[in-house]
Amino acid sequence: MRLTLFALCLMAFSFRPDKPAYRLYTSTLKATTYAKLLHQATEADVVLFGELHNNPICHWLELQLTKDVQTAKKGSLVLGAEMFETDNQTALSDYIQAKTTAKELATQARLWPNFTTDYKPITDFAREQHIPFIATNVPRVYARLVSRQGLSALDTLSADAKRQIAPLPLTVDLTLPGYQAMIDMMGNASHSGTTNPQTTTSSKTPSDMAANFARAQAIKDATMAYFILQNHQSGQTFLHFNGDYHSKNFEGIVWYLRQKQPDLKIMTISSVEVLDVNKPAAENQNLADFLITIPVDMTKTY
Rank of each mutant, 00 (worst) to 15 (best):
85 E>D: 14
51 E>L: 01
101 T>H: 14
107 T>Y: 08
292 I>K: 03
53 H>T: 00
86 T>Y: 08
251 E>Y: 13
77 L>W: 01
13 F>P: 00
22 Y>N: 04
265 K>Y: 05
34 Y>M: 03
220 K>G: 01
166 A>G: 10
57 I>L: 05
164 Q>N: 11
173 D>F: 03
179 Y>G: 06
111 L>G: 01
145 L>K: 13
267 M>C: 08
60 W>M: 12
14 S>I: 10
206 P>K: 02
107 T>R: 09
301 T>H: 08
167 P>C: 10
225 A>G: 08
222 A>C: 06
278 N>I: 02
31 A>F: 00
250 F>L: 07
159 A>W: 07
106 A>S: 15
177 P>L: 02
72 A>N: 07
108 Q>R: 15
280 P>R: 09
300 K>L: 13
120 K>V: 02
83 M>F: 15
239 L>H: 05
276 D>F: 13
226 Y>V: 00
161 A>P: 05
105 L>Y: 05
29 L>C: 07
89 Q>L: 07
91 A>E: 03
73 K>I: 02
153 A>C: 08
294 I>R: 03
33 T>M: 02
4 T>H: 11
155 D>R: 15
34 Y>H: 10
252 G>T: 03
206 P>E: 00
94 D>L: 10
248 K>C: 03
236 Q>H: 14
212 N>R: 15
14 S>F: 07
254 V>S: 07
16 R>K: 13
124 D>I: 00
201 T>P: 01
43 E>W: 03
25 Y>D: 00
41 A>N: 04
298 M>I: 09
61 L>Q: 11
110 R>W: 11
254 V>W: 12
